[in-house]
Amino acid sequence: MAMLHIVNKSPFERNAFKSCLDHAVAGDSILMIEDAAVGAVDGTVFADDLKAAMTDKSVYVLGGDLAARGMSEDRMIDGIKVVDYAGFVDLTADNDKTQSWV
């Protein structure tokens, strides 16, 4: 019964992303959209938290949101997968349920 967690807040501004990581369980997936996309970048104060979560969860970022914020994919933490809106839809279908960390 895996869950897709959708996060749309920058981890540098609010605690929604951190809270998401604290509540996702092994086997879940996390998708970063909107301002949360900046969380995909490596070398930030948040990167280690996300890397820790990636040991037993899959992490995705909406490519359009990353690009819109001027962050290229080569700056991302290794292992994060880039999806488009079609991929976003697939993630919601492949997981049993979703929770948005608004």
Binding site: M1, M3, D22, H23, A24, V25, D28, K97, T98, Q99, S100, W101, V102
Partner: peptide
């Protein structure tokens, strides 16, 4: 606890977030 809350959330069908 936070860990218990994670399991409670995982056990649901529909999540409305506010």
């Amino acid at each position: 606890s936070r860990a218990e809350m994670a399991n409670v959330l995982a056990d649901q069908d529909v999540h409305y977030s506010f």
